[in-house]
Design a protein around this nucleic acid. Sequence first.
DNA 1: CTTTTGACTACTGTATACAATTTTCTGAGA
DNA 2: TCTCAGAAAATTGTATACAGTAGTCAAAAG
Lengths: 232, 232
Amino acid sequence: MSAEATAPGTSKVLVPTMADAVVQRLRALIVSGEFRPGERLVEERLSEMFGVSRPPLREALRILQRDGLVQSLPRRGFIVIPITADDVREIYSLRFALERMAVELGMPVLDPNRLQPMRDALEDMRVAAEEMNDEAAVEANSRFHAALVSLPGHKRLIDTYEGLRLQLELCMGYNLKFREQMFGDRKDMHPRHAQLLESIETGDKEAVLYEIAHHGNASLLENLDDLIGTGG
Amino acid sequence: MSAEATAPGTSKVLVPTMADAVVQRLRALIVSGEFRPGERLVEERLSEMFGVSRPPLREALRILQRDGLVQSLPRRGFIVIPITADDVREIYSLRFALERMAVELGMPVLDPNRLQPMRDALEDMRVAAEEMNDEAAVEANSRFHAALVSLPGHKRLIDTYEGLRLQLELCMGYNLKFREQMFGDRKDMHPRHAQLLESIETGDKEAVLYEIAHHGNASLLENLDDLIGTGG
DNA sequence: CTTTTGACTACTGTATACAATTTTCTGAGA
DNA sequence: TCTCAGAAAATTGTATACAGTAGTCAAAAG
């Protein structure tokens, strides 16, 4: 999801703005854990760091605020959003509701070509599991679910889901234990998703709904308080 | 939903910023239909209109972009978001998914006091229906549903829902026919919501889910293309 | 020794000014 | 009359500069 919308019908060469460039770099720094949750984001320091002046930097921060990655404290500036155990529970519950909605609206999939992104992600997932490449596995998993949610072609659904994805990436970025827990079921990852995709292809909506409702992460959610600390 | 977050625990006197003030005034102008969907929002004209300089105005626009009321076209400025029939379908389908989620997470309601906002809204709805005051009915209806969604205390759920609420208000603001259709079931409005609240109070989750799934608006969704025009 | 008050520092909020790009208007040619 | 090129106008993107507020630390009073 880009921060800016492209004008429909136009296929001109879009000149990326400074603010957009800053969004991408800053987002990467945040989700990678370079900036830790709760950390203050001092504008002057960041503007110097990125080589831009403060106005575009502030715009970038507003965009990241929309994505749910930073928080604005009036007259006190921006901080990286502090994610608590309760926040993670929120993210997972909302994620489930959105995926369920995607399945209910998107199935049956009439045009098989629309499933190609999911097939590609699944294949990448298989390779990543084979090579024990967690980084690639995370990426493929992310892409698989994004493709699932994209099935109904529902813009608001996609955007909302994207925000949650970024916040989960942030969790993984700043908390290695969290990241580990997310892949406690590392071996099952590919088979489970393969099963899910097959159920989608055969049009077995009930099976798909059951599978996403029990889509692992039970152990993760149970250990959340130990991983992050209780919210408040 | 405020654009800025208040620091938890602090009850200081918050100095409202120019940008926040502009957000409120501009939002009112947009949802009331003063600015029509698709209309360009020229920064200099607006900054003159509100008596602020362009930087805080641009920040206000970014905040409204987050709420889904305006759209940013790179190097071409901001426009009021053009809402098509498909957009309204998106809004309604997402709304349903979120309300269902709220019911599933929030029921049973252990503390009866948490239902008070819904009771208040329902009472206001009854009075509004009695007085044939559509304005008040809209407001009470909005508040009832917001209270429903607030039951689980799920911040992300509430924020997402709030964005949809504003967009629906925008629809009603700029399209009188649309507004009329939304209250084609004007007489049923109060009884239906009273029934809904009763089911919540008695803890009949199945009944509640059934009711929000069939919560009117069928005729509205059928006539959308005539009301707005097909999206693209 | 504790508490309170004051000034100081750092930072955000805002305004003005300039640069770069897009859009529009004008005019010539087909 | 329509199309295309070029220039001018309008508007966005960005930088610099200043004002105002919140947080901090020290000094003085209790």
